[in-house]
């Protein structure tokens, strides 16, 4: 009987981790699996299996619980290897894993050739909205200060260590242009015939 699928499609392509690991010798230790979701990035992302533990049957088994497994992996994400091995358990049920055949492993895992991505330099300040700028100038004048420079708004960025950008210093010229209004479009074809 042909299958009849019901419900919405997801974006996953592949099998659950247990479906792969359960069929391999030694539970696939030393083998390489990859998430198809991460294949959208140009840099390689993959997982090298170090250790596998099966899980006991849950007390109240649900469809997803039954499919889970605990796997220790070495993770490489977007060409960057994580310093410590990590455990995959809660996401192991996702039908998004694929096994890389042994003869293709070398070709797939060329993460050492990945160039370090250029760190973007983002501007530190931006112009205030026009009316606000005028108001700020008036404020300064009313306080008896001299308006030598146009007041600028300091931009707020997410300052976590994972960000691949840095805020421009005094002499540095920012790569990214943040302006009021539309700015310079990435895809100019969308603005054909429009005055920017």
């Amino acid at each position: 009987m042909p299958y009849k699928y019901i419900g919405r499609k997801h974006d996953f392509i592949g099998k659950t981790l247990w479906e792969i690991v359960g069929n391999l010798k030694n539970f696939g230790m030393g083998r390489i699996v990859a998430r198809s979701r991460f294949e959208r990035y140009p840099e390689p992302s993959f997982l090298k299996i170090i250790k596998v533990e099966t899980l006991p049957n849950p007390e109240k088994p649900s469809y997803d619980d039954v499919r889970k497994v605990r796997v220790w992996v070495e993770k490489v994400f977007r060409g960057v290897k994580q310093p410590k091995p990590m455990v995959i358990e809660s996401t192991s049920y996702k039908t998004d894993y694929k096994l890389i055949p042994k003869d293709q492993e070398d070709a797939y895992c060329r993460f050492k050739e990945v160039k370090q991505e250029h760190v973007k330099i983002v501007p530190k300040t931006v112009d205030f909205p026009p009316i606000m700028q005028e108001l700020l100038k008036r404020d300064m004048i009313s306080r008896g200060e001299k308006v030598t420079e146009v007041p600028k708004l300091e931009l707020v960025y997410n300052k976590s260590s994972k960000q691949k950008y840095k805020i421009a210093e005094k002499d540095e010229k920012p790569d990214v242009n943040i302006t009021l209004g539309l700015g310079t479009p990435i895809s100019p074809s969308l603005y054909e015939g429009v005055k920017l």
Partner: peptide, 8 residues
């Protein structure tokens, strides 16, 4: 980014 900055 700009709204966040203005808010701050």
């Amino acid at each position: 980014t700009q709204i966040k900055s203005l808010r701050r």
